[in-house]
């Protein structure tokens, strides 16, 4: 008789973002209190309201806790090698410019091992959105020091505390040429959702840094409490300063966090610059790649110009 009590059917509403997730891969690997899932929720809501055709959105991750995002999102998704999400995404975008390409990865992946690719993709203004989850630590491998670990914070490979200057990532991104730069935390879900949507719709290299708790390996080790305590810290110590100079937004251990949209400017993307340059230099002998064509009468002459191209240049 007692069992019947549990047979009562309760209508459980479907989570509105379930259609964005590979539900057959749940449960995910992230720890209780981790901020990554919250950011994925914001990402899903941003995608939902962006109006983008989800069949044309591809997501690329590197390796690490955040690197697992690509595997949980129901998009064309690529889980690549450590640090190399951006160059993979570069090839994907150049080969198929009709795609909206999103890189979703962690601070260690994108700015330590992948730092060189980050700066060059920003310099080229490759048309992609880079969402970087900064949890100040290498989570997947067990809490090692990262280029983002604040001075004084302890990590498994900096057991006496880190003494290296940490990256100020919005400043790095802006100085390399990113056209959209914002920082929010996992606490600021509405601002963050809006920022991701803006970044997705921005043409060029857009960058969103998201501070997110790593209770298991960062805040526990540093006696900063659990995930909720980190959220309280984000709430109490964040100051929204849209348009702040990025050089002034460096972070320190449990210090003030400047959040907001710092950069939103226009610059020709890599593909636009390439097309414009070659059209100017080569005229109608320039043949953009198949996916890269705009309605342009000169393309009707493809076969003729192709036939003459070899003779003209060699």
């Amino acid at each position: 008789m007692a069992e019947e009590l549990y047979d009562i059917e309760v209508a459980v509403p479907e989570n509105p973002i379930e259609s964005f997730l590979r539900m057959d891969r749940m449960p995910h690997i992230w720890c209780p209190g981790c901020g990554i899932g919250t950011t994925v929720n914001c990402f899903a809501r941003a995608l939902e309201t962006s109006g983008l055709d989800l069949d044309k959105v591809a997501i690329v991750s590197g390796i690490g806790c955040t690197g697992r995002v690509a595997g949980y999102v129901r998009l064309d998704s690529f889980h690549t090698t450590h640090g190399r999400a951006i160059p993979f995404a570069s090839g994907l975008k150049l080969a198929n410019p009709s795609l909206k390409v999103v890189v979703y990865s962690g601070d260690g992946d994108l700015t330590a091992i992948g730092g060189n690719h980050f700066i060059h993709a920003a310099r080229r203004n490759l048309d992609m959105t880079v969402i970087l989850i900064n949890n100040f630590i290498y989570g997947m491998t067990g809490g090692q020091v990262a280029p983002t670990t604040p001075i004084g914070a302890s990590a498994s490979t900096a057991p006496h505390g880190s003494f290296e200057e940490a990256f100020n990532l919005p400043f790095l991104a802006e100085s390399c040429g990113a056209v959209y730069v914002a920082r929010w935390t996992a606490y600021h879900v509405r601002h963050l959702t809006k920022a991701i949507k803006e970044a997705l719709l921005k043409k060029g290299f857009s960058f969103v840094e998201i501070l997110a708790p790593c209770p298991t390996l960062y805040s526990r080790r540093n006696k900063l409490g659990d995930g909720l305590d980190q959220m309280v810290y984000y709430k109490n110590s964040s100051e929204i300063k849209n348009g702040a100079e990025t050089k002034s937004v460096a972070l320190d251990l449990q210090g003030k966090i400047i959040v907001g949209k710092f950069v939103d400017k226009e610059r020709p993307t890599y593909i636009d610059a390439m097309n414009e340059h070659f059209r100017k230099r080569l005229g109608d002998r320039y043949i953009p790649s198949d996916e890269n064509k705009e309605p342009n009468p000169c393309l009707e002459r493809k076969s003729r110009s192709a036939a003459s191209a070899g003779r003209a240049s060699f």
Binding site: F88, S90, G91, A95, L99, H117, H120, L282, I287, A309
Partner: peptide
């Protein structure tokens, strides 16, 4: 540029060797 191809000089060989894989999954 005359035949509809895209060449990019990447920042290193590591980037080059994975950019081609992105391009392959992009369909070329």
């Amino acid at each position: 540029p005359y035949i509809g191809g895209i060449f990019i000089q990447m920042e290193d060989e590591i980037a080059s060797s994975i950019a081609i894989q992105g391009a392959a999954w992009g369909g070329i």
